[in-house]
């Protein structure tokens, strides 16, 4: 596979473990902040951990917002992971209201404690995904319903349009969108690069889209 895969480096989190998984499946990738390279990429991965507003500020500071939006208009696949998925949405309420990349309409909300007050926030650990049964998604091809993935987050995405939900997950009393898809744009709240073979499969599917 010789597709040009770019992992976006905008100073938010551990990008190397994504690259390590890609190496493992024999896919070369480049970690970069170079806007010109984004536009020539065939696959764009937006990783990220940390705070939404800082991530958007970093993207802004590196002049990356327009190239990402332009890349998305070309129609080539984008995968947002964790905070990277949240950035795809219109806005987030983390530390005040902040605009996102607005590639998918919707907002990013904080978990609330369940009524029995048994959950911890952030959610850290493995949880199952429920695939929607009315649609087939290539990214989840070969993945069984109820497969476990590794999550680490306090906020989750709420698409305005239910059509953009690819899979859901339950934490406490909240059922949230754990994976999203709209046209050429894909996102996972969980970390495929930390989810064992089930996660490796998703990254493989993304490259093979």
């Amino acid at each position: 596979m010789s597709k040009k895969v770019i992992i976006l480096d905008y100073g938010m989190g551990n990008l190397f473990n994504i690259q390590r998984v890609l190496n493992y499946i024999g896919v070369e990738s480049e970690i970069t902040i170079d806007a010109n390279k984004i536009l020539t990429a065939e696959r764009l991965i937006i990783p990220g951990v940390g705070a939404f507003d800082q991530a958007m500020n970093n993207l802004k500071g590196q002049n990356l917002i327009e190239p990402i939006q332009e890349y998305s208009k070309i129609g080539r696949p984008i995968l947002g992971i964790c905070l990277g998925m949240q950035l795809l949405f219109s806005e987030s309420s983390e530390f005040g209201l902040h605009s996102g990349l607005d590639l998918i309409k919707g907002s990013v909300l904080k978990f609330e404690y369940d009524k029995d007050n048994t959950i911890k926030i952030p959610q850290i650990g493995w949880n199952t995904i429920s695939k929607r049964n009315d649609k087939k998604h290539q990214l989840l091809s070969g993945i069984d319903d109820g497969t476990y993935y590794y999550f680490i987050h306090s906020y989750f995405c709420k698409p305005d349009n239910d059509e953009d939900i690819m899979a859901t997950t339950i934490y406490g009393d909240t059922t949230f969108c754990s994976a999203t898809h709209k046209n050429n744009i894909w996102g996972c709240q969980f970390h495929p690069e930390r989810s064992g073979e089930a996660g490796v499969k998703i990254l493989k599917n993304f490259i093979n889209l």
């Binding site: 473990n17 493992y24 930390r194």
Partner: peptide, 8 residues
């Protein structure tokens, strides 16, 4: 280690 294990 990180080259071959894909869990946290």
């Amino acid at each position: 280690t990180a080259e071959q294990i894909f869990i946290p």
